[in-house]
Amino acid sequence: MKRSSYIVLGVVSAIFVLSWVMKSMSLSEVDDSIMQGFLLTVSAFLTLSIFSFLYKDNPFYKFAEHLFVGVSAAFWMCQGFWSTLVGNLIPRVSESLSGFFMVPYQPGSFNFHYWIPVILGLLLLMRLAPKGGWLSRWPLAFIVGTTAGLNFIKYLRSDFIDQVSSTFVPLLGDETNKWTGVGDFFSNLSLSADSQFVALLANWVIFVGVFSGLVYFFFSKEHKGVFGVGSRVGIWILMITFGASFGYTVMGRISLLVGRLTFLFRDWLGLIS
């Protein structure tokens, strides 16, 4: 390490300790104030370490990044262990283990079936064995096959049939706004949210938008003539969607940023109330 790196490390360590002490003192009326002060300082240090990436990639950012990889991997493993293995499997396969883990035993006549995924899970670990790696393909095949079958039905129903049926909306009138003729339509023309005009406009935009969007994604025919017009309308609708999604994402990220800045200026530094 360079001399300048040691200086930076020393300064950051000094600021960390100072923050810890000051935070613990400010939280003196709280139980466990030293631990609370330490944790708030750690949290602020990690927040600033991640923000430091805005300058450039640096050791503090890498530290936080690597720590996160380890912590989150362990978090999901422990969560899965306690909720799935201890919460769902053990109460069904072993009374003594249920007692050991203090979860209520759930006797049932078909509980022996739960040993099958345990065996398949152990076969999955055979991937680590030098010669038995091919056995790990069996549980993999089970997961792939079951998930493929599940997705086949699920997506066919929710992403295709349901979406297509929702697209065929009434184009002249619906339950609340019955079509009573052109004269009535124009005499009651209004831009209020519950007017017939706005409801029909929405239905037309959805119907035309979905079809033109699909036309844009259909590449087996050249986009010329009527098909080309449909494709052009499709890309307009898609650009509106991309803009709206972009704006929505920006707002979400800004909201997170405000949350982190609030933490730094209120919870850590105490500069805002």
Binding site: Y155, L156, S158, D159, F160, Q163, V164, S166, T167, L201, A202, V205, I206, F207, V208, G209, V210, F211, S212, G213, L214, Y216, F217, G234, I237, L238, I240, T241, A244, S245, Y248
Partner: peptide, 17 residues
Amino acid sequence: MNVPNLAAQRAIVIGIG
């Protein structure tokens, strides 16, 4: 969000499905 966005999202979702 509820009308043009829904229309294009639906076209995309049908393709993905």
